[in-house]
């Protein structure tokens, strides 16, 4: 396995750390295996993308391919609402984390909790903490993926630290492979 450090160096993880995945085909296969997927979009997703990719359209494309639900935690919901993807929900990140850790939660459709949750676009430390809560208290019923260009050690699967160009390339390739 490649050696990967947390993006913010002092955020020392462990002992359980995310599998770093730099092969988009492999990640696509892992995500596709899930029965019910949720994509969670943070407010930093636009900032991270720096206009190199239309993030709302990208997330909707991913969700469409996966038949996934989208949870938006912030003002980006306005953009998502304009694009009209049916299964898009607004919920604060902390409330969502609280629901996700509960195996009895019924999800946004009332049919049950998710088994795969994909995060994108949060402040590094904020996502780090949410993922760690889920790593310890929700590991029996769900797996997590971080799609940010930083290694998130508390996810189940994470990208390694990537440059903007490599990250955009990865995201496009991931979509193509789903």
């Amino acid at each position: 396995m490649m050696r990967v450090d947390s993006w913010q160096k002092a955020e020392i993880p462990g002992p359980i750390k995310a599998f770093p995945i730099s092969d988009s085909k492999k990640l696509a296969l892992l995500i596709k295996r899930a029965k019910k997927t949720l994509i969670v979009v943070g407010y930093r997703s636009l900032k991270l993308a720096q206009d190199k990719i239309d993030m709302t359209s990208y997330v909707i494309d991913l969700a469409s391919k996966l038949n996934a639900h989208i949870a938006v935690t912030n003002t980006l919901i306005k953009e998502f609402s304009k694009k009209g993807y049916e299964n898009t929900y607004l919920i604060p990140a902390m409330e969502l984390a609280d629901r996700l850790r509960d195996p009895e939660w019924k999800g946004f459709d009332g049919k049950g909790n998710y088994d795969m949750v994909v995060f994108i676009g949060f402040p590094y430390y904020y996502e780090w903490l949410i993922l760690n809560g889920l790593k310890h208290f929700a590991y029996k019923h769900l797996k997590t993926v971080s799609l940010d260009p930083y290694y998130q050690p508390n996810a189940t699967f994470s990208l390694p630290n990537l440059s903007l160009e490599k990250w955009i390339e990865f995201l496009k390739s991931l979509k193509d492979n789903l």
Binding site: G14, A97, F137
Partner: peptide
């Protein structure tokens, strides 16, 4: 709702103890 900042305990000489999961 807990979001651990550290997965270990290192407060006594029994430790470090891995408290994960």
């Amino acid at each position: 709702m807990y979001m651990p900042f550290c997965d270990l305990c290192c407060l006594c000489t029994f430790g470090k103890c891995d408290l994960s999961r």
